[in-house]
Design a binder for these strands. Structure first.
Lengths: 215, 215
DNA sequence: CGGAATCCTCTTCGATACTG
DNA sequence: CAGTATCGAAGAGGATTCCG
């Protein structure tokens, strides 16, 4: 039962011992947008197979990357969530997301699409220099999924669900959203063409578009 | 011959399509410290096997991550080197190196050890904000491995071997070095306790400790 | 030396079916 | 729902061989 290891006294190799198997990093990506049930993970990872998912979650739990918790009543469902150690992988995942965008140019027919992935892409491309003193939140409604971005003290959080009192609401379909995140469409153009609709403060909109890469 | 893909329209998934197979990211790590011959790679990746290495290099070349070049005479040897796209993976690798440090606490008997990997670890923990106008070099002697850091124009280079005229020489054992790198020990404390010894300019020492994460 | 090709064994993956 | 069991297919690992 001894797990396969690269057996190298090196941080990269150890990281790959933990994360290097097929699907593992994608599971972490899924959990980055909040705790998920087994079934949610299955749906977010088309093709994984239940046995693999079980095995990966068990491994990640063993490494202290993932934790299994039971939500308080009345939900009472069991979910998987990232530990502190797991959340500290966020910069790595975002780096991979940004790097992978270079291969995302051509959308392929066989590709699955999910709003949550767009949020990861979104976060990975948010321009930090635009954050500054900003302290506000934007709600994104991409097709029928809702997320929000919360900016405060130079930190950016992207979470599932709607914002309490958003300074801006952004509506879009998944296609447009991904295209903007991938840098293939200018956010301002998408707004101008109506592919992206916004409600809220005009200045908030401009700051938001700037963070999305608007020139 | 259709390559296996996650088929997700997501940057992370595409990145894993390219980099996610066994050994691939470690090959990139190896090439991060300079071009390497096939044999050098084999030695830096104990256990990989010639067929796998060939296949991975071919894939990476196909993706434009790696390039095959023939060195000018008299060397005239064929080497593999990272393309611009490949070098842009450095932040990701460094992120993984930093994360993997947390699993490196216990050195295992069966682990391979190579100076180049320690260099990667060092580079991954150097704090960039401390660089500023600094223009100097530090030599590190970790157990019997020697490498040096050269800082100039806000850039940091880590190289094998000793420095020509180092402003500072830092001595330490591997355990201490890793503990400092992983943030488990304050560099200044390690100096105070004698676990890290330094020779050279006092101000250089302070700058160096700052880059190692001293508060 | 720098690979490519072949063969064989073992492990892992992927898909489906089945159970608490 | 949340997994376990199972089984054929694909990939990994190691050795060896061949070639330029």
């Amino acid at each position: 039962m001894s797990k396969r290891s690269y057996n190298q006294y090196c941080g990269v190799a150890r990281a790959m011992d933990v994360l290097g198997e097929r699907w593992t990093l994608l599971i972490v990506r899924e959990l980055l947008t909040g705790p998920k049930r087994f079934k949610d993970l299955l749906e977010g990872l088309p093709g994984i197979g239940t046995n693999l998912l079980t095995a990966r979650l068990k491994d990640l739990e063993g490494y202290g990357v993932v934790r299994r918790v039971t939500l308080p009543p009345p939900a009472a469902s069991r979910v998987y969530e990232l530990t502190e150690l797991g959340r500290s992988l966020e910069p790595v995942i975002m780096g991979l997301a940004r790097w992978g965008l270079k291969f995302l140019g051509a959308s392929r027919e066989e590709d699955d699409r999910q709003p949550a992935w767009a949020m990861v892409a979104l976060k990975s491309v948010l321009k930090s220099e635009a954050k500054g003193e900003t302290r506000e939140s934007y709600e994104f409604r991409v097709d029928d999924e809702v997320f929000h971005v919360w900016i405060a003290d130079g930190e950016t959080e992207v979470r599932q669900g709607s914002a309490a009192d958003p300074d801006l609401v952004v509506r879009s379909d998944t296609q447009t959203f991904l295209a903007v995140a991938a840098g293939r469409i200018e956010p301002t153009e998408a707004v101008a063409s109506g592919a992206i609709g916004t409600e809220g403060d005009r200045e908030a909109r401009e700051r938001c578009m700037k963070m999305l890469g608007a020139r």
